[in-house]
């Protein structure tokens, strides 16, 4: 078999996963795209192991390790997503901006002490006044809405 076939398939799968990670909004969809990227790497490992006929079978052993680490990663990732969803009422990663650098709303960062109580409210407390007027429109231009405050 030509080695280019599995290599090109792995490249294309990786880029599909890359698009998913960058373009998706729901955190669980991002985790699915991460799984696609990990599988592309695994396919590369297996293909090169079969090509090189390694006596240590490094490729296949590393593939098994990667699969186990991916299982651990998805477990921890889903636990974090569930925790975020429980605390914030939403798992949209576009709205989780508590840790962003300054340049956003001036009131958002200075009132750090009181944000813990407010964070139970469903997300985007930075743009609460914007939510009222623009509704779902604000989700499409999320970064722009934050810039308007600055």
């Amino acid at each position: 078999m030509h080695l280019a076939y599995p290599a090109v398939l792995a490249v294309l799968l990786f880029c599909v996963g890359l698009y998913g990670v960058l373009a998706r909004r729901n955190a669980i969809l991002v985790l699915m795209a991460v799984e696609l990227m990990l599988n592309a790497v695994n396919l590369n490992l297996v293909a090169f192991d079969v090509w090189l006929r390694d006596t240590l079978h490094a490729g296949q052993a590393l593939t098994l390790f990667t699969i186990a680490i991916a299982a651990a990663e998805i477990g921890i990732g889903l636990a974090i997503v569930l925790l975020v969803h429980r605390n914030r009422g939403s798992s949209d990663i576009d709205r989780l901006r508590d840790l962003r650098e300054s340049g956003g709303p001036p009131g958002g960062d200075s009132s750090g002490g009181s944000r813990d109580e407010k964070s139970v409210a469903p997300a985007t407390d930075n743009d609460a006044d914007n939510d009222a007027e623009s509704g779902s429109d604000q989700q499409v231009q999320g970064p722009a809405a934050g810039r308007r405050h600055a």
Binding site: L22, S136, Q139, G142
Partner: peptide, 25 residues
């Protein structure tokens, strides 16, 4: 709202990565 607002940037990035990597590979 399954897709974020930067979908087209993501598409451009992934297409550029795919083109480069497929060429190299």
């Amino acid at each position: 709202d399954a897709d974020s607002g930067n979908r087209w940037i993501a598409l451009a990035v992934s297409l550029a990565a795919a083109t480069t990597l497929v060429t190299v590979v």
